[in-house]
Design a protein around this nucleic acid. Structure first.
Length: 781
DNA sequence: GGAGGCCTCGGAAGG
DNA sequence: CGAGGCCTCC
């Protein structure tokens, strides 16, 4: 089928409610799209419909949250309408606003080549400021201060708004942190000094630009006749206000989202925006996409059961015409390792029984720490898997180091970059000298770089040997800058990598890590080379905006690099793998068969959420997201005991399990009992525990007579005879209860692969594999 | 300036 | 338990 035929019948590929939403181009509209209802299809077809109806792609703005979402949507539209789609303004909020800010930088007093500070840079800066102000960093934790500043910006409170806001100031005073407003002030001053913006500033400054410069506002209002916002439930207040300003002239604004899948309130997303939207646009047209195409009736039913427990939600009824499907399996395991084994076994069997491929399976979990036992179990059965998440390419140290050289070359005021590289690789400029420079910079209210340029000033009390090293460093960076003005990005980049000594430093490190660092640098350089030759910016950008010159400069490459935070997709050629990821990362994906592991109270829902209703509702939406990833089969699993920070803790089934209608659950996989809300695992509460974890301490009765217990170390076992009385406590009471007391007949192997033959008092004899169990020897009274 | 000891603290995560 | 930050010592 060629693209013309596909285009002519694109409307036929939509159901009536999807079509309604697609053809309604003018005026404000809101699409509430239930899970699996074809949201992306509606969004892309809506843009296709516009282009087909003579809307200039150049006047369409589509905002997403992730680079991935933007990329995917763009690809789909290109496939449908061809290269017209290249002119769409489609990207993340941050990338689109950054592009606008670079054009309009002068109006708000920034150079066009301003640096974008990433999360690490911001945190370092805050940490430094707290130290300089001589505040206690226990009370003023950098992450907390930054979070507070970030929320202020995301709610459009400027520094002066903050300082004059009685409520904010008294909140800080009550919390014993009255200086936060002041820290905010200093933080912004320092960013400005460095010609830098953090991620929040990209929003806040766009807001300021549009608010204070009517000409700029008018320009972009005219330009963007049609505006679309994906994942609207994840927008924060600043994003909403900016979008509203941009749309004020034409009011052709369409937002798409699902309040039931809002899982990012903790980082500022504001469900309230959906309610405000209805208020702000009285003639709003609302479309509800309620038919689910993805999952079986069972899965959709269970998801509806769960979400019905939330008070805050827009009313909608997700339904499906799909088959009923299999019931939900519930796996109950003794330990986290056992849970992994059961899941791996189930995958192994289902793969054969249903001719599924590895990639049809996903195992989801609440916290990254849960992946270890799952990985081990999969490896045992030779099931290939892929873990999502982890350090993205651009967050790696060696990459950030080289990029810091680039940043400093382009913007000498970039203090965070300077700090990374002034003595890396080592060139004899120590911390003490650097601190002297900082003090002088502060006195003179100039940048540290300025002081370095002026290093031969008699007032600067630094040994002349070090002074000349600093002068050399300055000369080197300046020579980079000269080169960067005219030569293409790749030539400059590889020259910097060489001349700075960074490449050599990494090359000399022959450890396997060192080699991989070196390879990563090569990979980055290869990417820059491609950029130089292809002439496209690293991020999607309207092709018409490209410079006509055939030389791609380093600063063009660097423009959006701080915004590229995607986790890297390193494949070894085999993409048929089971996916392991957190529930957050699974949003937007779908799999034939899904396992949600660790369905335990205090894990999912997280124990940090149990005291607040808002947090609990977000946890529940998170579980909703997890359930609705599954197409054909869903398995929920929980362990009765789990290692947490080295301690074995007892676990109860999650309250969420009891929110699912039992008719959807297959009981044969839950052999002993249906989990009840607040249920305790079956077992004898009077059994002793030696865990010092506060959770287990509170849940279990204290011992009447406290036996002395030690964790076994392998040396101790060497002297251990089979006749010594021993109680094996794996998973606290569980095995203890099952087997009672016993004597060890033989011990073989060493931790963590210890095998024991034990004769129990009830006459049973068992061979136990004590792998990863915390074995405790109890001296009998 | 780097290695090693000690202390702290532990959620999820895009740009 | 274990990663990361910080301090100390050479």
């Amino acid at each position: 089928m060629n693209s013309k035929t596909r285009m002519s019948n694109y409307l036929d590929q939509l159901n009536p409610s999807q079509r309604e939403a697609v053809v309604c181009m003018d005026g404000p509209s809101m699409i509430i799209a239930g899970a699996g209802s074809g949201k992306t299809r509606v969004l892309t077809y809506r843009m296709v419909h516009m282009i087909k109806n003579q809307v200039d792609p150049f006047s369409i703005l589509a905002l997403t949250f992730t680079n991935k979402a933007a990329r995917e949507m763009k690809d789909r539209i290109i496939a449908l309408v061809g290269n017209d789609a290249l002119n769409l303004w489609m990207g993340t909020f941050h990338s689109v606003f950054a592009r606008i800010l670079r054009v309009e930088a002068e109006k708000i007093g920034f150079p066009s080549a301003f640096t974008i500070y990433d999360a690490d840079d911001s945190k370092n800066l805050v940490k430094k400021i707290i130290q300089e102000q001589q505040l206690d960093d226990k009370n003023y934790k950098p992450s907390l201060v930054l979070h507070r500043i970030s929320s202020a910006k995301n709610n459009l409170f400027s520094v002066s708004d903050y300082l004059s806001n009685d409520q904010l100031m008294s909140e800080d005073r009550m919390a014993g942190k009255p200086k936060i407003g002041e820290l905010y002030q200093i933080y912004q001053k320092r960013l400005k000094q460095a010609d830098a913006m953090d991620f929040d500033d990209l929003l806040f400054n766009t807001y300021l630009l549009l608010k204070n410069h009517p000409d700029a506002l008018l320009k972009y209002q005219k330009k963007f006749r049609y505006i679309m916002v994906d994942e609207f439930q994840d927008t924060n207040y600043a994003q909403y206000i900016i979008v509203r300003k941009l749309a004020a002239q034409h009011e052709n604004i369409c937002v798409v989202g699902d309040d039931a899948q809002s899982i990012y309130a903790f980082r500022g997303a504001n469900i309230q925006n959906i309610l405000n939207f209805e208020k702000d646009y009285p003639d709003l047209k609302t479309f509800k996409l309620e038919q689910n195409y993805r999952s079986t009736k069972t899965i959709v039913g269970a998801a509806n059961n769960v979400i019905a427990n939330n008070r805050h939600q827009l009313k909608k009824e997700v339904w499906t015409e799909n088959t009923g499907g299999e019931k939900i399996r519930l796996l109950r395991a003794i330990s986290d390792n056992e849970e992994g084994n059961q899941i791996a076994n189930t995958i192994f069997e289902d793969r054969m029984n249903f001719q599924f491929k590895n990639k049809d399976f996903a195992i989801l979990y609440r916290t990254n720490a849960q992946s270890r036992s799952l990985e081990e179990a999969l490896r045992k059965l030779n099931i290939p898997y892929r873990i999502y998440g982890g350090l993205s390419f651009f967050k790696r140290k060696e990459i950030k180091d080289l990029l810091a050289y680039f940043r400093l070359t382009i913007n000498h005021a970039d203090e965070e970059a300077l700090e990374r590289v002034y003595n890396y690789p080592t060139r004899g400029i120590g911390k003490t000298s650097y601190e002297k420079l900082m003090v002088i910079a502060d006195q003179r209210t100039c940048t540290i770089w300025n002081v370095m340029e002026d290093i031969h000033d008699k007032e600067i009390e630094i040994a002349s040997g070090i002074k000349s090293k600093i002068a050399d460093f300055v000369t080197m960076i300046k020579s980079f800058a000269v080169m960067a003005k005219t030569q293409n990005a790749y030539d400059v980049a590889s020259h910097i990598a060489q001349s700075s000594g960074l490449l050599k430093e990494l090359f000399n490190d022959k450890t396997s890590e060192g080699v991989s660092h070196y390879e990563n640098i090569q990979e980055l350089l290869a990417g820059i080379k491609e950029f130089s030759e292809r002439g496209n910016p690293p991020l999607e950008s309207p092709s018409t905006e490209l410079r006509e010159s055939d030389t791609r400069l380093l600063n063009e490459y660097m423009q959006d690099i701080a915004l590229l935070t995607d986790a890297e997709n390193k494949d070894d050629g085999n993409d048929d793998k089971v996916s392991l990821m957190t529930v957050h990362q699974a949003k937007g994906l779908e799999f034939k068969e899904v396992f949600v592991s660790g369905m335990e109270e205090n894990l999912f829902p997280s124990q940090l959420s149990v005291n607040s209703r808002e947090d609990m509702e977000e946890e529940r939406r998170l579980f909703y997201v997890a359930i609705t990833r599954a197409e054909k089969r869903l398995t929920l699993s929980y362990a009765m005991t789990r290692y947490r920070w080295g301690n074995l803790t007892g676990c109860e089934p999650s309250r969420f399990l009891s929110e699912i209608n039992p008719e959807f659950i297959d009981m044969k996989f839950a052999p002993e009992s249906t989990p009840q809300r607040g249920a305790r695992i079956s077992g004898d509460d009077s059994l002793p525990t030696y865990s010092n974890n506060s959770f287990t301490k509170n849940k279990l009765k204290p011992l009447t007579k406290k036996p002395t217990a030690k964790a076994v170390d392998p040396k101790l076992l060497e002297n251990f005879t089979a006749d010594d009385p021993l109680r094996i406590e794996i998973g606290m009471q569980v095995l203890h209860q099952r087997f009672g007391k016993g004597k060890v007949m033989s011990l073989e192997g060493r931790m963590p692969d210890l095998k024991a033959v034990v004769n129990f008092e009830n006459g049973e004899s068992k061979q136990l594999l004590l792998k990863y169990a915390r074995l405790k020897i109890v001296e009998q009274p």
